[in-house]
Simulated assay, not measured.
Amino acid sequence: MVTNWIKSLSGFITVGTDKSLKKALKKITGITPLQLTHYKIALHHRSLSKPGQNLEDYERLEFLGDAILGAVITSFLYHRFPQKKEGFLSEVRAKIVNRNHLHQISINLNIPSLIRHKKTETVNLPKSFYGDVLEALIGAIYLDRGYKKAEKFILRQIMAKHISIDEIVQKINSHKAYLHEWAQKSKKHLTFQLIDSWGSSHHQTFEIGCYINNELISSGTGLTKKSAEEEAAKIAIRKLNLS
């Protein structure tokens, strides 16, 4: 059984007794585990396997959990935004299940403290590893307690506590945020600088320039610097054919 070979391993990071593992999992997920086997597999890195051993690790459960996470998020967004089109829903979902995003959520949930791996492997873990294990944990909950419990974990422990839908939507609707994201991916240096302002102190108009790699791409005007930046970003997106 899984319990036996876990206890027999030496020189590895372990999670202690079954009782302490159950307690830790309930604290993280809000759900009481019934069968620990699935969770131990979800938290098992391949570095634990000895030469010649063929022990299952988290990757199959990650595959399962990824599908469940996607289904729950899709259903949530479908009902949250009844008037929005498929493109918008897909974009919001993509930002929620982004690998870097899931990686950080896993850290916030303290899942790394439960992962078993060789001490020497710690520095060699891939950047997405903690997020992958989070998905594997979702798969384990599904196999142990069913879809409804997995959905409960996703909605109550992940969505409600670690994801701001309003912030994600705001970024999607913001031309400046969109341009910043493009600049980061394209390794461009993006800045917004005040070019001019006029009018009384209570009714000023601002002109803001949008610069990429120190080259002026566009400028926008507005009654606030923020609105002028949005206008400049909107024009820049059109000029760069990014929309």
Results as ranks from 00 to 15, higher is better:
Thr29Tyr: 01
Thr29Arg: 00
Gly30Asn: 06
Ile31His: 13
Ile31Val: 14
Ile31Asn: 11
Pro33Asp: 11
Pro33Met: 05
Leu34Gly: 14
Leu36Glu: 04
Leu36Ala: 03
Thr37Tyr: 09
Tyr39Gln: 02
Ile41Cys: 08
Ala42Ser: 07
Ala42Trp: 06
Ala42Gln: 05
Ala42Lys: 08
His44Arg: 14
His45Thr: 04
His45Lys: 09
Arg46Lys: 15
Arg46Trp: 03
Ser47Phe: 07
Ser47His: 08
Ser47Met: 03
Ser47Val: 09
Lys50Tyr: 15
Lys50Asp: 01
Pro51Lys: 09
Pro51Gln: 09
Pro51Trp: 11
Gly52Ser: 06
Gly52Tyr: 10
Gly52Met: 09
Gln53Asn: 12
Asn54Glu: 07
Asn54Leu: 14
Glu56Thr: 12
Tyr58Cys: 07
Tyr58Asp: 00
Gly65Lys: 02
Gly65Trp: 00
Asp66Pro: 02
Asp66Gln: 09
Ala67His: 05
Leu69Glu: 10
Ala71Asn: 14
Val72Phe: 00
Val72Thr: 05
Ser75Asn: 14
Phe76Gly: 05
Tyr78Gly: 00
Tyr78Trp: 13
Tyr78Val: 02
His79Ile: 11
His79Glu: 13
His79Gly: 00
His79Thr: 12
Arg80Tyr: 12
Pro82Lys: 01
Gln83Lys: 15
Lys85Val: 04
Ser90Gln: 10
Glu91Ala: 01
Glu91Leu: 07
Val92Ile: 15
Ala94Glu: 14
Ala94Trp: 04
Lys95Pro: 02
